[in-house]
Design a protein around this nucleic acid. Structure first.
Lengths: 340, 340
DNA sequence: CTGAAAGCGCTTACAG
DNA sequence: CTGAAAGCGCTTACAG
């Protein structure tokens, strides 16, 4: 934009101090006198000076940047990414910003697009990985980086040895079960699986089963086919239920996308929700607010989720462990379950 | 991670060439012989060497990075951002990636959070601004940057002098009007405004009005109150229609969020959609697929949108203008309008 | 086709 | 409290 970029030397000349003093004053080094700092700041403003971050980063070795990778299903269009991950992405960016970190965002799916050498190229100080657990190849790739020493935290990892943050799935599933019981449902099925790379699904099953057992109810599970899209999993699950002669009066879906597919199929088959069949999901997706009936769900606190992911990564970068791993959840009562 | 970072000097030593040759070989300078390049690449691989981008950028002055700013309504939670902007964001990141650019993403709302000195700090080569036009202060801020010479393109700018990309609103609105007419609707109202900072709304009104005039139908407009949330605008608009004794048999909503609010209120008031009232939106939001009935809409080609924003910005950075400004749209036929 | 050297613009010991 | 100098790790004229 300019012929000669304004540097700290120009500011120094204008303020009548040395270049090193300009640097100290601007980085907030407490050793410089207030009078000098004021003079430097004024000169910087007059010259519209801004630090060249590349030079600063080259010198300090710190980037003040976090990379956020959203793993997509291979070939998935970006507009079709599960809105849950977009909400999470927004919350992560907000949390990073609150800690004065920039966020370098990328969406990755096919093998050719997999890339995570952010630290090696000194583009970022660490990585946050979120997105579809269905893309095994992508997760394996980032597992390799993790094993090679990358600073990396993720949401709902398919691997145990990753540093992860997850929803309070156990508590959330208990909440869902309690809600259904309280509203008079008794023959409740879990539409999900214990065997998903999405470990959170198993945790939800366990919390659900535990709560039902307390009530003397035998929990049932209708297995989903994870090669399909989440919505299709929901539709197929409901079809299986229909073929089995509706052995249930309520469905707890492993996530909202599955629930929305299930809801579609329930309506298609003429089942009244919530009177004949109650339905509750998990994730608190915004789309559920517009379904008919609107979908009752378990919603994680997205702001906490973003903050915890960022804090955990910063702890890792700082050589610490970070303690919190579970994001609190709440019941998002809409209308796919009966009124009290 | 290491004691001593591996530099191009280490690679040079291993490959038995000078450091400058390493740099040339790795940046793809055609002047180096293939034999030398192969030796350098091999040495780099053996040492797990990666270029320090900060040093490269300091030297070249180019960052290979684009900043993407999503403007939010003040205080809006990140999970509540209009999904349209998330789809757009994903598409932008994908398009940038295809052009070998990284994307630095931030969400901004309140005055304190407004920040766009990416070029001044050499963090990015240019800016893409998307998001809510309701946040006037934010747009004014970026207008200031634009006037000061920032390389900046935006989606649906409220200002004429910005470099913008928009949907083919005129064509899309004509498509919506044609669709409604074809399905037998005659008394059609536009739920929107000509006076929004969201200029696209006016364009949609004009295309809509033009098409209706061709048919000898007088277009009507039900003004929205833009101080409310989009959904609330839709609800209020339908209430106004009810109070006026339903002077319509179909509604073209200025965007999907408005349409979804309108749909909710229509159902609340016992109006059958699509038999009594037809409804069509604009944006192709994913949430509309789950409403009941699913929302017919006009959908921009998101992939084109992302690509055009990125190409336009890169043209600007390169000192050119870039030609395309209009994203093609298509009718997304769902069920909130009658069958043929 | 390759090498020696300068320089991008900072931060930070080291001296005073 | 401040200044002179070194050095972060590259790219790119300039020579040969």
């Amino acid at each position: 934009m300019r012929q000669h970029r304004v540097t700290s030397f120009d500011v120094a000349a204008r303020a009548g101090v040395s270049q090193s003093t300009v640097s100290r004053a601007l980085t907030g080094d407490p050793v410089v006198s207030e009078a000098t700092r004021a003079r430097v700041m004024e000169a910087a403003r007059e010259l519209n000076y801004h630090v060249d971050e590349n030079a600063a980063r080259l010198r300090t070795g710190k980037t003040g940047t976090l990379a956020v990778v959203v793993i997509c299903r291979p070939g998935e269009l970006r507009k079709d990414v599960n809105p849950f991950y977009y909400s999470l992405l927004g919350s992560i960016c907000a949390a990073a910003s609150a800690c004065d970190y920039e966020t370098l965002v990328s969406f990755q799916d096919t093998a050719e697009s997999l890339w995570g050498l952010y630290e090696e190229q000194r583009k970022a100080d660490g990585l946050i990985i979120i997105g579809s657990t269905a893309n095994r190849q992508a997760w394996d790739y980032f597992r390799g980086l993790h094993d090679a020493g990358a600073h990396l935290v993720c949401w709902g990892s398919p691997f145990d040895d990753f540093d992860w943050i997850r929803s309070d799935n156990h508590g959330g599933a208990r909440l869902a079960a309690s809600h259904l019981i309280e509203r008079g449902y008794r023959r409740i099925v879990y539409l999900g699986t214990e065997h998903s790379p999405q470990r959170q699904f198993k945790e939800r099953w366990e919390g659900f089963a535990e709560r039902l057992h307390e009530e003397g109810i035998e929990p049932k599970l209708v297995e989903i086919d994870e090669t399909l899209s989440r919505e299709e999993q929901g539709r197929k699950g409901v079809q299986a239920l229909a073929e089995a002669g509706w052995p249930c009066d309520a469905i707890f879906a492993a996530c909202d996308e599955i629930a929305l597919g299930a809801l579609e199929e329930l309506k298609h088959l003429g089942k009244q929700v919530p009177s004949e069949i109650g339905l509750i999901g998990f994730d608190g997706n915004r789309g559920g607010a517009h379904s008919s009936p609107p979908l009752t769900s378990i919603e994680p606190d997205f702001e906490s989720a973003g903050t915890m992911l960022v804090k955990k990564l910063l702890a890792l970068i700082g050589g610490n462990e970070g303690d919190e791993r579970r994001v609190p959840v709440r019941l998002l009562e809409r209308e796919s379950t009966r009124k009290a």
